[in-house]
Design a protein around this nucleic acid. Sequence first.
DNA 1: GATTGATACAGGATTTTTCCTGTATTTACT
DNA 2: AGTAAATACAGGAAAAATCCTGTATCAATC
Lengths: 222, 222
Amino acid sequence: MPVPPTVKLALVDDHTLFRKGLISLIEMVSSNYTIVFEADNGLDLQQKLNSDNQPDIILMDINMPGMDGFASVQWLNEHFPLIKILVVSMIEKEETIVKMLKLGVKGYLCKDVEPKELGEALNAIMNKGFYYTDFITGKLVHSLQNGQDASAKAEALNLMNDREKVFLQLACSEFTYNEIAAKMFLSPKTIDGYRNSLFEKLNVKSRVGLALYAVKHGLVQL
Amino acid sequence: MPVPPTVKLALVDDHTLFRKGLISLIEMVSSNYTIVFEADNGLDLQQKLNSDNQPDIILMDINMPGMDGFASVQWLNEHFPLIKILVVSMIEKEETIVKMLKLGVKGYLCKDVEPKELGEALNAIMNKGFYYTDFITGKLVHSLQNGQDASAKAEALNLMNDREKVFLQLACSEFTYNEIAAKMFLSPKTIDGYRNSLFEKLNVKSRVGLALYAVKHGLVQL
DNA sequence: GATTGATACAGGATTTTTCCTGTATTTACT
DNA sequence: AGTAAATACAGGAAAAATCCTGTATCAATC
């Protein structure tokens, strides 16, 4: 039976106590993990990480002074894209989770999980390449359906009337306003009015702004 | 001990043999499932489904003549949003999977899974509300990172030179071309040239088209 | 040394977009 | 009946976007 190769870990978290606790937990769970270094934020990480002590997995907090988890992950993606990242945060907000997943992190744990799950997560990341719990997957799929911010979308839709919504759809295209007017059986001058009204309501200044607003809020499907 | 309430299922698949096979499997796995009806495509489903025989879960194929899985799910979302959908398809393409997840399906199984997993999926959907395997989750997260079509994005980026890329970024805003020219330290006429060149390369006809192309291909982050 | 291609730029015209002010009609409310 | 709000529309003008043709520079290629 081959000896399992030891997995190298690094921790990035501004709470010393939490870091130390994690380490003792990890050592308790299994002996084939080595902590190569600890850092208490992204800047510290940049200092301590070099090509000689590259960990396999970095356990990353999000809320940190100096350089937070998002910036740290982005930096790692650029400079050490092979290092796998497991987020360990107290934040359970959908937006935060999705943002991190978009950055390519391999797992996301809340700080209150059972120690056992931490072991499973590290294991899965080494073997399968990722560890996403049902909770995370649920958030992700949910965000997928509602574009992103369902309330923002609803709010946006609430601002306009039905004709304006139709107009907005057509404005997100290469039709001229004259063509749009024809399609809606209205005078170009009425279209003028819709546009001005939406400019004010949505706080944009040009047709491009209108289109970008619409896609940002999931009001048009590309 | 309470009797578990029977779960009502419906099948939508154009292959009779596969449908019958599925049914016998389900009956073998557990006795608390009832098949309320079968349909061999979306149109047939619309005929057979009414408010009296609403299933809890619909097992849905994708490739079907007449009305396919996508159209069927969209129709169900509009008319019977409470019915949970479990896709059972041979298609393993990321784009297809993600498209279905965006439509809010509660699970996605490939037709070659073990019978046991079908039972688990149905169970999970009834209890947790969804069933996403690691395979599906992996595809989803992967698509999330690469925007959508990584190759299409790369191809698009390949079409333009660096200055044009910068211009495109700035064009996706409410700046006028004069302002963009100032920001890029170029003559407005040069900006004119970039625009015309991109119009041709990206096959669009207006600045709005330019902006929509950019977001569609993940070239600008909103 | 001539040619080609890419890049930055101009003049000038046309179309589209944006903006401002103002009117007629309808509906709803007092 | 009188008023207010919403809706559809106009005239007219300024700004921005679009389009076409043409030139100058530079670097690479033959």
